[in-house]
Design a protein around this nucleic acid. Structure first.
Lengths: 253, 253
DNA sequence: AAGTGGTCTAGACCACCTC
DNA sequence: AGGTGGTCTAGACCACTTT
């Protein structure tokens, strides 16, 4: 008899597990409900804990689960849609943005940022740190780089490098005329600092949105914002809630 | 020398490894170069292979590395910017899109899609399958749902449900007047079908872009496109190459 | 103190590609 | 056939939260 190969295309165990769990989440669990712990689940499915964890990681990546050390694994609510590319009130800090300025320092930016801003690499720029909150949860951390030339009327040592100064920079920035903005979205992983601010562990997946604000033919400001990839759906173009498939796995599991 | 350890806040080994490797990639490797195999690397750093793999996974997620089973691990080129939200030639299929129609069937869509299209759940819609290629590599797979009412002049059984029919649907769709489009981006994982088309393994991270095309106050079409998250940077608003930080990890490793 | 998820190990075997 | 990355195991210990 030798080896009866059974399945011509054997599916990995963790992938099959992911599918089974996903269906169970749809039919047998409510949002916020706590799942059995990993050791129990692994035993129940007859796999090693590492394999079970591989399946849970997938589901967490897809925004279906939320895991917290010392607490447990819970069923995650649907992702929140956060508006990113609205055409109106485009300048950062306009409207009821839910952005909360945290800090502002005048320092030389990373080389890549200086290049994009077309400033000298050692020329200090206003670096505003903001965080964005939605539904009571932190969803994004941002660094906004504003060259001094974009806020010419900023009264010198307006405030001693803190939230007040951040607000002053944003206020001055809005006096300019925004021509257009260009954004890019890519996948990244949270550094230690962002991770803490987003209430995640280092290495957590984030959607990195880099936006260039153009005014009078120049790059007036540049923003690098990191959004929690597990909880956020970024919406472009007049917001709207395009609720399509739900734990996005793309056809044919 | 001896022990270079002793951190007051013990960083996970795999995270520290990730940082060390990342710096090595910057300074000692060229794009396309092959890294030593995982067993050698693990031995060289004095860790288990699983730990080394955890670091490699991070770097692959960040688009720094490319791993192929049976071949090896290579240094990845910078991510390619793919335009997604340009205001001009907005209808799918216009311009030199690099989108390649693969198929088209008339079938009842998933319930969530029918809801978004505001059609009955069992009403069949044209379902166009396309794939997008950039720099010779597949970067995206798309399903485009077009209700029959959006292409009223489509000559009935125009072509027998294949690429020709797909092109016919796109051609008819472009005769309408696009008012605006709404897009959303979120993280997902590739299903078996998409994974094969994108030349990745099932579960590979993808950026899911759902776009709603609005014409005459109605949803004229709906697109669900999955982009390879490891190789793509999605650009919105008049393209442009916003090359900022490069293996996006967000400050403070 | 007890229970949770997070990290790490040292093996084994498998699927895939290239020679 | 030999080398590569991908999967899986059965344990151990750690960091964190709650009781």
């Amino acid at each position: 008899m030798g080896t009866t190969q059974l399945e011509s295309v054997p599916e990995p165990k963790y992938w099959h597990l992911r599918t089974v769990l996903s269906e169970a989440l749809d039919s047998e669990f409510e949002v916020g409900e706590i799942l059995p712990n990993e050791r129990d689940l692994a035993a129940r499915f007859g796999v090693a804990r590492a394999t079970l964890r591989q399946a849970l990681e997938q589901l967490e990546l897809e925004g279906r689960l939320q895991r917290r050390r010392g607490v447990g694994t819970t069923v995650a609510p649907p992702r929140v849609g956060v508006a990113v590319g609205t055409r109106e009130h485009a300048w950062p800090g306009t409207g009821d943005d839910a952005w909360q300025p945290a800090d502002c320092v005048l320092a030389a930016p990373p080389a890549a940022v200086a290049d994009a801003l077309e400033t000298d690499r050692d020329e200090p720029v206003h670096t505003v740190r903001r965080s964005r909150v939605s539904h009571g949860q932190p969803v994004a951390a941002e660094l906004l780089y504003v060259p001094a030339s974009s806020v010419p009327d900023l009264t010198a040592i307006d405030a001693p490098a803190g939230p007040a100064r951040a607000r002053a920079v944003l206020r001055e920035l809005q006096r300019g005329d925004l021509e257009r903005q260009e954004s890019a979205v890519e996948l990244g992983s949270a550094g230690a600092e962002d991770a803490k601010e987003l209430d995640r562990l280092p290495g957590a997946p984030v959607l990195v949105v880099t936006t260039r604000y153009l005014a009078e033919g120049r790059t007036a400001a540049l923003s690098v914002a990191t959004y929690r990839a597990d909880t956020c759906r970024l919406t472009f173009g007049d917001s709207g809630d395009v609720e399509i498939h739900h734990g996005p796995e793309t056809r044919a599991s």
